[in-house]
Each structure stands twice: as C-alpha cells, then as structure tokens.
Nucleic acid binder design. Structure first.
Lengths: 192, 192
DNA sequence: AATACCTGCAACATCGATGTTGCAAGTATC
DNA sequence: GATACTTGCAACATCGATGTTGCAGGTATT
C-alpha cells in the first residue's frame, strides 16, 4: 500500500504523522487555516510541510486518504457481512465512532479526488447497504424500509455522536454507539 | 427592524436581494467561492457587491442575518408554544424545511458574530426545548428522555431531509416533514 | 566514521483575492 | 424634467498565502 516512491527515514515518518495530526486538529476547528498555523501546531517549520506535501491540496488529500484508510479498516474489522446484523451494527458503530472522533475533519471531505479514496468510500457504502438488507431480512427493519433514508439517518446519527464524543472520556464510546443504534431503530419517542 | 441608516432605492433593493440569493447559491456549492463568482452569479459587477457589502465578511454576515430572520419567522409561525405538541412538531418541521432548502448555506454558519442573530438562534433553541418538554409531559417522549440528544437528532434529521429536498418538487415538503417526525419518534426499525 | 537524509531559517518570487477610486451613462423618484 | 441615486468599467493599491531555493547544522543508517 506504498504510494510514495521510496521509504522515508524514521524521523521523517514521524514528522509526516505529526503534520497530519496537527492538520486534523487545526483544520477541524478552522477549515481555512493556513499552512503556517498547521506547521506551528505540528511543531515544524512551514517549509518542512511543503517539503512533505507539495501543495495545500496535496496535504488535504493525504489527510483524507489517511483517515479513509482508518475508516475502511474500522468497518472491515466489524465483519459486517458475516456477524448477526444487530451485533454488526453495534460493532461497526463503535469502530467508526472511534475513528471519526479523532479524524472528523478529514472524513467530512466530500467528493474525494483520489480514486483510491473513492473506492474505499464506495466499498463502505456497499457494506452498509448489505448490512441493512440483512437486517431487513431478519425483521429488524420493516420490509418497506427506505434503505437510502435509513443510511442517511445512520450516518447523521454517527456524526452527531462523534461530535458529542469529541470532549468525552475514552470509555464512553460504547454508550454512544448503543444510543446511536437504539435511536436509529426506535427513535427518541416513547416505545409503543 | 431597519439596521441600515437610510432606505435604499427600489432598484438597489433588488440588487441586494439578487446578491444575497446568488451568494447562497454559489457558496452552498463552494464555500470558498470568490466575490467575483458571486457577483457573476448575481449578474452584477464585482464593485457593486463591494458597494453594498463592505467586506466579504459583511456579506456572509448579512446572508446569515437574512436567513436567520426567515428561520425565526418559520418557527414562530408554527406557534410551537401553544398548539398540540405533535401538531406543532410537524408544522415546525414543514416551515423550517421550506426555509432550509433554500438557505442551507446561510443557516449552516456556526457562531454568529451578530448578537441579533445569536438571540434569534437562542430563542429558537428555547422554543424547541419548550416544545420537547411539552411532548414529554404528554407522553410523546419518555420521562427519562435526553432532551439534548433529542434536539440534536431532530436538527440532524431536518438537515438530511433538507439535503434530500434540494432537488425535489415543491409539494414534497409535507412528506419529508412527516418522515422526519416519524423517524425522530420511532426510528427506521420495525415497530414492536 | 562515512554517507545520505532531514530540518530550520532566511530570502525571494508569485499569485489571486480583496478593497478603493473616479467617471460616464443609465434609472428611479419627486 | 430636474435631481439624486445606482451601476459598470477600468485602473490601481494592498495583502496574505503559497510555493521555491540555498545552505548550514543535525540525525538516522550502514
């Protein structure tokens, strides 16, 4: 999965990581932040950022690619195609929340330029769709459910939960995920 | 409610409207669009935009203020403090959706600078909270409902519905609102 | 220890977006 | 129809962000 021409030296690798993490932090609070600010947050000189990422766009793309990688792994790790729908739903939610809380900005990018990133997103979409279909077969979702709408609601709930989980403790993710799944299936109203 | 020093001439008034509408259109598809692009979309010269709005920030603020005005009116018009909770919920949703479909960008601005705008948002928040409390009293929401979470979910659902309603016909708003309310209360799962 | 790589710093070049001004021609208002 | 407002156009000024280069000092790797 090496996209660069040659392996980086250990310290350079760390620098790249530091820049990506700083970019996430800074850009999530201000999407129009300058390279200068990102460099400062990463604890490196601005020129060093340009050395690693030719343009601003390249940096943002790399950021998106990195986060998408994590995102994809998070979904895969939940084995959404094989484990029981309800279990898979919960596990996927937990895993994705964990990634999204830390890489919210990078994952909010729409219309990725990198085809690799686009493929990953499409694959995740596919797995989500597949999972929902299985949930429908099991009676978890009604036969006439609008799968498109269900997916949108699911994504939106995860987004909100991630937002809320931003300043929360580490262990709260499970509770957040439980609430997301519960709300997705039954809403916030009184159960009949 | 006049914030300007003097009334504008009729044609100038129209120009301002055209600029605001163009800004909404252009900025919603690309938040970093230039004044040039906005001017072009409005069918005026760039200098004219600067004549009406001193800086870019002033334009965006004015846009937010305009949309917030509409938003506030939309909520008020539904009489959420007096009509029955379920009715109010539906009516508020319809009204807000109508505004949000047309002024999505302007309403997505966070942390408004104008105190007037901040007050309007706070007031809407208050009305939403009040409505949810009444809904709880009526048994529509469970006694132990997390009102904060419920509100977040409600906002998110409206956001999604507005997104979907962007390219839809005029009359579909009622159906969208019905789905939002239903999803908010019962989720997308099979009702027990 | 020799080598190749990495970084900070300073200086420079470029570029696009923003904002201003003056004026001539057009248009609303009375 | 006189007046005051509005607009487009062209020209100019400014500014911050981006991207580049050279070099000297430091660090990983062998």
């Amino acid at each position: 999965m090496e996209t660069k021409g040659r392996a980086l030296r250990a310290d350079a690798e760390r620098t790249v990581r530091a820049i990506l993490e700083a970019a996430e932090r800074v850009l999530s609070s201000d999407p129009t932040a300058t390279m200068e600010q990102i460099a400062a947050a990463a604890g490196v000189a601005r020129t060093t950022v340009h050395r690693r990422f030719v343009t601003r766009e390249a940096l943002v793309d790399a950021l998106a690619a990195w986060a998408t990688q994590r995102f994809h792994e998070a979904v895969e790790a939940a084995r959404p195609r094989t484990s029981p729908p309800l279990v898979a739903l919960h596990q996927v939610t937990v895993n994705v929340l964990q990634v999204k809380i830390g890489w919210g900005f990078a994952m909010s990018r729409t219309a990725p330029t990198d085809p690799e990133v686009a493929r990953a997103h499409a694959d995740v979409l596919d797995q989500c769709d597949h999972l929902f279909r299985r949930a429908r077969e099991e009676g978890l979702l009604p036969p006439d459910v609008d799968l498109e709408w269900a997916r949108r609601v699911y994504y939106a709930l995860i987004h909100e939960a991630a937002e809320e989980g931003r300043g929360a403790e580490e262990g709260a993710v499970d509770a957040l995920a439980a609430r997301v799944v519960d709300t997705l299936l039954h809403g916030v109203g009184t159960s009949k």
